[in-house]
Design a protein around this nucleic acid. Sequence first.
DNA 1: CAGTTGTTTTGATTGATTCAAAACAATCTG
DNA 2: CAGATTGTTTTGAATCAATCAAAACAACTG
Lengths: 160, 160
Amino acid sequence: MPLTDACHDDGGLRLAAADAGLLADSIRSAGLKVTAPRLAVLRALTDRPHSNADALFGAVHSDLPGTSLQAVYGVLASFGTAGLVRKIEPAGSPALFERRVGDNHHHIVCTRCSVVHDVDCAVGHAPCLTPADALGFDVRAAEVIYWGLCAQCQADTSAP
Amino acid sequence: MPLTDACHDDGGLRLAAADAGLLADSIRSAGLKVTAPRLAVLRALTDRPHSNADALFGAVHSDLPGTSLQAVYGVLASFGTAGLVRKIEPAGSPALFERRVGDNHHHIVCTRCSVVHDVDCAVGHAPCLTPADALGFDVRAAEVIYWGLCAQCQADTSAP
DNA sequence: CAGTTGTTTTGATTGATTCAAAACAATCTG
DNA sequence: CAGATTGTTTTGAATCAATCAAAACAACTG
């Protein structure tokens, strides 16, 4: 019940068109000042979810050449605490960021090419998010990462 | 079926007494040379599962003062590829290591004190390890980390 | 439009981990 | 059991991701 992990749909945040006004609105309504680096990071993240700080810096830097990598880290940190982005940290990878928040979806990562996709929290499987024996813990969240070969890498590997 | 994740018991590896002969045997039967640093790391890991490289270095260093941190990293890497230890990488923490391998158990981490406990893979919940929609991936493993407050930290927090 | 507060830049630093070459030691072979 | 072989450890340096701190700057408030 106190789980962050309820399997419901996201709160209506639609990530399609990265209209500048909408981006500004979501920043403002998270209680943050609207600035060029923030708009640029949020736009880049809309276009390419599951990017790391460096990739976002690359994307942002081409629109907005004055921006520093540290600014990107700062923007991501403020977005994170404001609940505007979610940070995921798959083993062996730098942190990745995505705008899809609020639902607790999971991730599937290719062990060969490292591509990441979202995986919905399967309705009917929600009990999984409660451990067999919580050992007295007050469980607040569950994080699931699936590892495997993506379709493309399966094709590449089976025909060498 | 190809999942690494079947919920079965471990293969008879009992982690109780860290008898030197048994430790040596498991190293040897993994196809590795038996050396003092390897025995020391394996013993330390038996005594304190979920340790990071630095903590293991500390433990090893007191028995075997000549040992370097890099040796510990080397030992852990060879143990990892030999299937003798498992590496877990909870977000925001350095990598942790444990001897309990082969079963795919999960972990529960305290968000306040960072203590880690094992959580068995719940029989009857195994379907959870198959994503709702694998998106064409050949899924090989599923990793689950629960986050919450341990019993101790709940007590400390509720009575400040 | 000026003040306040929060943001970004600049520059340096940390922490975890990895790399590479040389010194060394465990096992294999005779 | 000594010597050869192969793999391991040491030593020392480097990398990558991320964070810290102070000064310069810009967005919202009134």
